[in-house]
Every structure is written in C-alpha cells, then in structure tokens.
C-alpha cells in the first residue's frame, strides 16, 4: 500500500463514520419530532374536544330525518236514544245555586226514588257546605260547577273570559278538595246565550270544561209559595227523547219535586246524572267544542 493509498483508506473510513454519525443524529431528530407531535396531539385532544378533526369536516352532506308525531280524527261517541226500534227517553234533572238549606231535602227525595241528578254548585256554597257536597258525590250525583259569585257584570262584562274561567277553576278546585273528584261540566249563570260569544266559548273549551244549558226551564225561582206552577212548566215543555231540566235548590222546588218525578216517569222517561264519558251537546249555540 502506498502512502497515498493508506491516506485514502483513512479518509474513506472517516467519511463513513461521519455518515453514520449524521444518520444517528437524523434518526434522533426524527424521534424527537414524532414524540413532539404525539404530545401536541394528546394535549390538544384533552384540552379542546374529541379529536383534532371537527364534526363539520366529516359531515358536509348530512341528511337529518325528523321523526313523526301522530294526529287524530277520533272523538267521543254518543250513545243512541233510538235504535233497532227501541226508544230510550232520558231526563237529566239539574239543580243550580246550591248547596244550601234546601239541598238536603232534594237529596232525600232523589234517594227515595233511586234517581241521580246533576247539581251545578256555587263555589262559595260548596266551601261552606262540604258535607253536603260529599254526600251529593257519594250518593252518585254529578257535582257540577256554577261559578263562585254568580255576578253577571264580573263574569260577562269584564272584556273577556278571564274572570269567568278563573271563577270556574276556583270552584273546580274547591269541589276537588272536598270530593277528590275534579268536575268538568259547568253551567254558566243566566245561561250561555247571549252573553257568551264564540271566542269566549273557545276559551272555556280550551280551559278543559264542557258546558250545559238546558232544554226545559222550570222557572222554579219565580214561584215561591206556588210550587204547582213549577210542575205545569215541566209538563208543558216535556217533548223530546232527551231533556235537561233546569231547577234550583229552592224550597218550592223541594216541595214539588216528587210530583215532577212521578209525572216524568209516567211519560216513559228514565233519569240519569251527567257522566263525562256519555257527554252530549246541550248548549244554546250547539257548539261541539262544549
């Protein structure tokens, strides 16, 4: 080997060592970068969200489906009073403005005749006579509502239905507290027409009430001391297969009630109390919402 060759061998070996050193430094750098990126990714995930990728970049053509609700066309059904050649004649005896001193006698007469009726009560009277309300309900009569005050101006001249509905809700609450039953049938003081218009009736329906007027007015309130006039009124108006008779918790009514019952029965009628599952329309405007 010449001096030159030996020098060349030495040079090639040192270049080799240099290259290996460079390679090791480079690999070290690569590992540092990898570790650095990994740490960066992990910290970012922990601090800011699920991943470095955002949902919006994944879902650019996303189709969203709404799930469906169900409508309904069904309503309450009314039982027939005339079917298959049979006729059923029914009278609903109703008593307004109680309970008071005369209610007990009315209930006794109804019980003796095995008859159930519908009592449209004033909330204040109900509050003051809870035992009467309880008896009424327990004996199978319907505990209807007739407002708190029976005050025409307050109920109908206040510019809307608010007072009316609030009074009936209060009366409803009183009856519910006494009986555990929440009645929904109301009778408007003085009747629903003409004081209650369409929007007003809608408000009543939206408040969850049903409303009855009547088909026979006994005018019993006009006849203190003349109970037989009450019977005449009923006799002259009893014509339809289904009748709703308006009466009041009055002395003269209690005096004539037995005769009224006897007459109605003699004409082939049965007696029933209001039942919410057998509701039928009985308001002056024939509003089906009520």
């Amino acid at each position: 080997m010449s001096e030159l060759d030996g020098h060349n061998v030495v040079s090639r070996s040192s270049r080799h060592r240099k290259k290996r050193r460079m390679g090791r430094i480079f690999m070290l750098l690569v590992m540092l970068i990898i570790v650095g990126v990994g740490v960066y990714a992990g910290v970012k995930m922990l601090l800011s969200g699920d991943s470095l990728a955002s949902a919006s970049t994944i879902r650019e053509d996303f189709v969203v489906t709404e799930v469906a609700a169900m409508g309904s066309a069904a309503k309450d059904k009314t039982a027939p009073t005339l079917y298959n050649g049979m006729k059923r004649k029914v009278v609903y005896l109703t008593f307004d403005d109680g309970p008071n001193a005369h209610t007990s006698e009315l209930l006794d007469i109804m019980k003796n005749n095995d008859i159930k009726g519908t009592f449209f009560m004033l909330g204040e009277n109900a509050k003051n006579n809870p035992d009467m309300v309880k008896r009424m309900y327990e004996e199978g009569h319907y505990p209807g509502l007739h407002s708190m005050t029976h005050d025409y101006s307050k109920l109908y001249k206040s510019g809307g239905s608010k007072n009316f509905i609030e009074e009936f809700q209060e009366a409803q609450s009183i009856v519910n507290d006494i009986t555990g039953y929440k009645p929904t049938l109301i009778r408007a003081p003085y009747g629903s027409a003409p004081q209650i218009g369409e929007e007003f009736r809608g408000d009543i329906a939206n408040a969850g009430f049903k409303m009855w007027d009547w088909t026979i007015d006994s005018y019993d309130w006009k006849y203190p001391g003349n109970p037989s006039a009450i019977l005449s009124q009923v006799q002259s108006q009893l014509t339809e297969d289904t009748e709703v008779v308006l009466m009041h918790d009055r002395e003269q009514t209690a005096q004539i009630l037995q005769q009224v019952i006897d007459y109605i029965r003699s004409q082939g009628y049965e007696f029933e109390a209001y039942h919410p599952d057998q509701h039928f329309i009985c308001n002056f405007r024939h509003d089906e919402r009520l």
Binding site: I34, V37, G38, A41, G49, D50, S51, L52, A53, A55, I58, R59, F62, V63, V64, T65, E66, V67, A68
Partner: peptide
Amino acid sequence: MLVVLTGCGTPAIDLFIDHVEKASAAE
C-alpha cells in the same frame, strides 16, 4: 405517524349522531 395521530379514532359525538340518525331514518 402524523396522519395516524391526527385521525386517531372516531369522535364520540360523531358516533352518537350516526346512531341517532340511523334510528330516525329507520322510522
């Protein structure tokens, strides 16, 4: 390794949304 680290795993929110939409679409 950069690609793997950045795309690691499907986010939980996306998994949830996927399943919710599959359920909705099944009706």
